[in-house]
Design a protein around this nucleic acid. Structure first.
Lengths: 152, 152
DNA sequence: TCTGAAATATCTCCACC
DNA sequence: GGTGGAGATATTTCAGA
């Protein structure tokens, strides 16, 4: 990633992380640029792969899920795990990792029985170790550039 | 969460998850509603807490981070952990969980030395067990309503 | 790369159903 | 809850610097 972000880019990114639906002209007003300038910068950031997309955060409970779980998995075949994950929309993320296990899955379930049936089917692929998520924080926090981290 | 989503709501949510910047009129064209109708539904979904916000997915590498790690933490004081997380923008998420550990942290680091210094400071609060994330999948996948999951 | 201006599209009310 | 229309905003495009 050899794309140098200037301070305008960083401000645009910060604003768009907070609200992806801000108009270019509103952003321009806040950072003192005209809307065509903002639009072109955003387009460049998208083309450079810095901005990967604009999404909507949805309340999983509103979709009928009641809680989330983290599952550490040890598998023989990563392909089998990938296929399992692709086939299950409950899977929110699959992280291949170093460590005793092979991967960490985060998934959303509608009920304990739902989790049980997922674990049963996942058990055919590998060994699992499950933690229920009680609460989550920081997920909505804007991502700072690494060179802008506060001094400690 | 006692909010019944009808099929229009679900289509709007699906479209907005893919691209949060679609215009109301473009959404209306695709689902056969007028733009004021779409705008009012989105407003209701936001007020009901179904739509929690519109965000931008940013490439962490473009911000100067080179990899992510998952850290299982066992702490005496959850408050101390929360303060630590709040003070460190590298923390992408804190999940309080059931299990042998107390919480699982996901964080972004710029270099191995960066991870090392974070672990050192986190070590003052509790015990840690760290896995480096090699690759991640499914994070960009749209969230389906639980009652719409494919039959298996 | 930005600005300014013109053409096009969208949003926001609001009356009505 | 929806539509359709009117006025205000926003986006897009492009010439010029």
């Amino acid at each position: 990633m050899n794309f140098e972000l200037d301070s305008y880019d960083r401000k645009i990114i910060a604003l768009l992380q907070e609200n992806a639906r801000l108009s270019w002209s509103e952003i321009g007003r806040q950072i003192h640029l005209t809307s065509p300038a903002v639009a072109e910068r955003v387009k460049r950031l998208e083309e450079a792969g810095v901005i990967m997309g604009f999404t909507t955060r949805i309340n999983l409970r509103a979709l009928g899920y009641s809680f989330e779980a983290m599952i550490q998995v040890t598998v023989e075949s990563h392909d089998a795990l990938d296929r399992w994950a692709a086939a299950h929309p409950e899977v929110l993320a699959v992280h291949a990792t170093t460590g005793n296990h092979c991967a960490i899955l985060r998934l959303a379930v509608s009920a304990p029985e739902h989790l049980q049936s997922l674990l049963k089917s996942l058990g055919d692929i590998g060994k699992t170790s499950t933690s229920v998520i009680l609460s989550s924080q920081c997920e909505e926090r804007p991502r700072l550039p690494a060179d802008q981290l506060p001094r400690r």
